[in-house]
Amino acid sequence: MTPPNKDSLFGSKRQAPTDKANQLDSAVKEILASEHAIRERKTARLRELRLEKEALQSPPEPKTKSKRKAPKKSGTAETESDE
């Protein structure tokens, strides 16, 4: 067993800023890649379920256009007084 010293108790020397940045960058890329993979799997699963549901349903009936009614006239224009 090695005797305790400054390095074994408090860790080794400080990392160079570029090494620390590279380590952080790789960790972030791993996290983003895993999240992207999870999102893609979920999207594919939901797409398959939606397509299955649409295949089981009967096609929607065509909508008939309703006739437009004439807009109602408001009586405010006739009751305005001249000042």
Results as ranks from 00 to 15, higher is better:
residue 1 M to T: 00
residue 2 T to K: 01
residue 2 T to M: 01
residue 2 T to H: 00
residue 3 P to T: 04
residue 3 P to F: 02
residue 3 P to Q: 01
residue 4 P to H: 02
residue 4 P to T: 00
residue 5 N to P: 00
residue 5 N to Y: 00
residue 7 D to P: 00
residue 8 S to A: 03
residue 8 S to Y: 00
residue 8 S to Q: 00
residue 10 F to M: 03
residue 11 G to H: 02
residue 13 K to R: 12
residue 14 R to H: 04
residue 14 R to F: 02
residue 14 R to T: 05
residue 15 Q to N: 05
residue 15 Q to F: 01
residue 16 A to R: 04
residue 18 T to D: 12
residue 19 D to L: 06
residue 20 K to V: 01
residue 21 A to L: 12
residue 21 A to N: 07
residue 22 N to D: 10
residue 24 L to A: 13
residue 24 L to K: 15
residue 25 D to R: 15
residue 25 D to T: 07
residue 25 D to Y: 14
residue 25 D to N: 10
residue 25 D to E: 09
residue 26 S to K: 12
residue 26 S to V: 05
residue 27 A to W: 02
residue 27 A to Q: 11
residue 27 A to M: 09
residue 28 V to F: 03
residue 29 K to S: 10
residue 29 K to L: 10
residue 30 E to K: 14
residue 30 E to P: 00
residue 30 E to S: 12
residue 31 I to P: 00
residue 32 L to H: 05
residue 33 A to I: 12
residue 33 A to C: 07
residue 34 S to R: 09
residue 34 S to A: 14
residue 34 S to N: 07
residue 35 E to F: 09
residue 35 E to D: 11
residue 36 H to W: 13
residue 37 A to K: 12
residue 37 A to Q: 11
residue 38 I to L: 13
residue 38 I to C: 02
residue 38 I to S: 06
residue 39 R to M: 06
residue 39 R to Y: 08
residue 39 R to H: 07
residue 40 E to L: 14
residue 40 E to H: 03
residue 41 R to K: 15
residue 41 R to V: 03
residue 41 R to G: 09
residue 42 K to S: 06
residue 42 K to E: 11
residue 44 A to G: 03
residue 44 A to L: 12
residue 44 A to Q: 13
residue 45 R to M: 06
residue 45 R to Y: 09
residue 45 R to P: 00
residue 46 L to C: 01
residue 46 L to D: 10
residue 48 E to I: 03
residue 48 E to T: 11
residue 48 E to K: 14
residue 48 E to M: 05
residue 49 L to R: 14
residue 49 L to D: 07
residue 49 L to K: 14
residue 49 L to M: 12
residue 50 R to F: 05
residue 50 R to H: 13
residue 50 R to D: 07
residue 51 L to P: 00
residue 51 L to T: 11
residue 51 L to C: 04
residue 51 L to S: 10
residue 53 K to F: 06
residue 53 K to W: 11
residue 54 E to S: 05
residue 54 E to W: 02
residue 54 E to R: 05
residue 55 A to I: 03
residue 55 A to P: 03
residue 56 L to H: 08
residue 56 L to G: 10
residue 56 L to Q: 15
residue 59 P to E: 14
residue 60 P to I: 09
residue 60 P to N: 11
residue 61 E to V: 07
residue 61 E to I: 09
residue 62 P to T: 11
residue 62 P to G: 06
residue 64 T to V: 14
residue 64 T to H: 14
residue 64 T to D: 14
residue 64 T to N: 08
residue 65 K to T: 08
residue 65 K to N: 10
residue 66 S to Y: 06
residue 67 K to F: 08
residue 67 K to M: 06
residue 68 R to M: 09
residue 68 R to G: 08
residue 69 K to D: 04
residue 69 K to S: 15
residue 69 K to Q: 13
residue 70 A to C: 08
residue 72 K to A: 12
residue 72 K to V: 13
residue 74 S to Q: 09
residue 75 G to M: 07
residue 78 E to Y: 08
residue 78 E to R: 13
residue 79 T to E: 14
residue 80 E to A: 11
residue 80 E to G: 05
residue 80 E to D: 04
residue 81 S to E: 13
residue 81 S to R: 09
residue 82 D to G: 03
residue 83 E to P: 04
residue 83 E to W: 05
residue 83 E to I: 02
residue 83 E to Q: 05
